[in-house]
């Protein structure tokens, strides 16, 4: 089988601003693929194009061997994608469990049922308990989102992304704003996610990157400079110079 996700010759410009330039990349089944690159490299724009939040100017995105570049993002969820956002993007006036309910419903066919109360669906309840317990948020299920700490909200973003039984999850800087202990907790959680879920992650924290990545793609000024396993990226002289200022990775 081919790669789960294939991006080929992807371009995105905003008027005169050319943000993505002929980006090519592949994400294999079960991989933990991390995208790194300095601010403004176009990482989030790449995510938005993969997820359908933005339409690419040119180029193709294949998911499970089918072109999806012009599909609305809600259709991609049904095909098995989900994502988190760089800035918390939650339903602040709803409770934690209501947030999770919505995320679970995203991939259910009975989301169009107007006549049966949501809470009577057993699988919704089971899935909710499962994800909330797994991530240690079950005790907080009745809290409103805006009562949670920032780190907990970050966590809830990830919980939502995992609630729709996805095959590919896009995590946009999941650890930004987390405390060191939350970050290490997060890293452990990521390692526990079963391998039938593929992860594509944008991450700045190099410790996190090298502890979870199978493969790293470096994005710089909208170009995918390099893709490879962590060791080869760590050793690449050019990368060290332009991105890490040299030597930063050898420690």
């Amino acid at each position: 089988m081919n790669a789960l996700l294939k991006v080929s010759d992807l371009n995105k410009s905003f008027k005169a601003l050319h943000v993505l330039k002929n980006v090519n990349m592949e994400v294999e089944n079960g991989e933990r693929h991390v995208i790194i690159g300095p601010n403004g490299a176009g990482k989030t724009t790449l995510f938005n194009c993969i997820y359908g939040t933005l339409t690419p100017t040119s180029g193709m995105v294949y998911f499970k061997d089918k072109p999806i570049h012009d599909e609305e993002s809600y259709k991609r969820v049904k095909k098995g994608m989900s994502r988190t956002f760089q800035k918390n993007n939650l339903f602040e006036d709803l409770t934690v469990e209501e947030n999770v309910h919505l995320a679970i419903l995203g991939n259910k066919d009975y989301k169009f049922n107007p006549l049966k109360p949501l809470l009577q669906y057993k699988d919704v309840n089971e899935k909710k308990v499962e994800v909330l317990e797994e991530w240690g948020m079950y005790a907080r299920r009745k809290w409103l989102v805006n009562q949670l700490s920032y780190g907990e909200q970050r966590l809830l973003e990830i919980i939502l992304a995992l609630s729709s039984n996805p095959t590919l999850v896009l995590l946009d800087e999941p650890t930004s704003g987390m405390s060191p202990s939350e970050t290490s907790q997060f890293t452990n959680f990521i390692k526990k996610i079963p391998r039938d879920i593929t992860l594509l992650i944008i991450e700045h924290d190099m410790e996190v990157v090298f502890s979870i990545a199978d493969k790293i793609t470096v994005l710089h000024h909208g170009e995918a400079l390099l893709s490879g396993d962590p060791e080869s990226v760590r050793g690449e002289q050019m990368i060290q110079e332009i991105y890490f200022g040299g030597g930063a990775l050898s420690k």
Binding site: T53, N89, F91, L118
Partner: peptide, 28 residues
């Protein structure tokens, strides 16, 4: 009452709260 407690109704409320997020969660 039934409608607002059903999936359709809960999703409606979600759309009111944060429409773009609902799109990302798989709803039109």
């Amino acid at each position: 009452k039934v409608y607002t407690s059903s999936p359709m109704g809960k999703i409606l409320k979600g759309v009111m709260e944060n429409e773009s997020r609902m799109t990302a969660l798989g709803f039109n």
